[in-house]
Design a protein around this nucleic acid. Structure first.
Ligand code: SF4
Ligand code: SF4
Lengths: 150, 150
DNA sequence: GGTAAATAAGATAATTAATGTCTTATTTAT
DNA sequence: ATAAATAAGACATTAATTATCTTATTTACC
């Protein structure tokens, strides 16, 4: 009942790209460094994000990735589900036929509610919101000035 | 991001016991048959439930399990977390020190909210509620009379 | 007390999923 | 044409889940 590493990395990558703005090409290396993602792992993650039409991958020298949709149009849920698949919480929510009781089971209904709630919460927040606040990216060198001790 | 098999079986077992009432001894075999749980697997699951003080295990002939607390006093969340551990959704919620950003990360806050909501939903429903409605246990032989086709 | 019925406890095996790495191929700026 | 950058997917490692199997313990009953 946990987000996978790949899921977390995908979110970081997407938030970083959103932070830079839609359509702005960023090198893979920069993303890896700033968002602390193993380089080879990101390559695989990016493939899935590209397949899902969330980013465009540009090869060649000066290559990299950029965000395809507007940051407002992508939710945290979308990014997460691209990586780990649709969230179901319990098997019988995914495939009701896997348990003959699913139609009458009160436990099933609780899982269904919990699942909808969870997806709604993750679906309600866009990359735009996440990127405008501080998140996922270590404090930018430039913005370290006054001590952050409070 | 899914309940494990063991978690699902534990819930079934607990709902079945709750259905029978607190303190009522039921043989392991009966539970396995009625709740459709592999017998040897239940043995291991029961050990954890007993360690968590949710059931008492009685050995010997006429042995079996029974519910220790009142059904109203046990939530679905409790049963699930005994089996799969406390729900955190993302690693940084479990151990904020695992990501240096957790204090300022807006994504972190979304996960935190989602997690609290999920635990609240699962925590709000007791075994008593679940057991009084039809759930987890295939329709009882006695109650099969009119065809269940509707 | 002895016996057999029932489960305990934990070791072990099989399966599946997650994570990470490596190699070869392709794209593209210069 | 060349070299820089990533693509694509195969491969290896690790960890978690699921299941089973063996030996030990408990206890009702005679
Ligand atoms: S018993 Fe209920 S909760 Fe469990 S798998 Fe079946 S429908 Fe789902
Ligand atoms: S970047 Fe944010 S969400 Fe991701 S691990 Fe760090 S604190 Fe958590």
């Amino acid at each position: 009942m946990r987000l996978t590493r790949a899921g977390e990395y995908a979110v970081r990558c997407m938030v970083y790209l959103a932070h830079k703005g839609q359509g702005v090409l960023i090198s893979k290396q920069e993303i890896c460094e700033r968002a602390d993602i193993p380089s080879h792992f990101l390559a695989k993650i990016a493939q899935e994000l590209a397949k899902a039409q969330l980013i465009i991958i540009r090869q060649g020298p000066k290559g990299g990735y950029y965000l395809l949709p507007q940051p407002e149009d992508v939710s945290l849920l979308q990014v997460v589900e691209v990586m780990i698949g649709e969230i179901f919480l319990n098997d019988c929510i995914d495939r009701p036929q896997s348990c003959t009781l699913s139609k009458s089971c009160s436990v099933h209904r609780v899982w269904d509610k919990a699942r909808n709630q969870l997806r709604e919460t993750l679906g309600a927040v866009s990359l735009a919101e996440l990127a405008e606040k501080e998140s996922c990216i270590p404090v930018f060198p430039a913005s370290i000035s006054s001590s952050s001790q409070e």
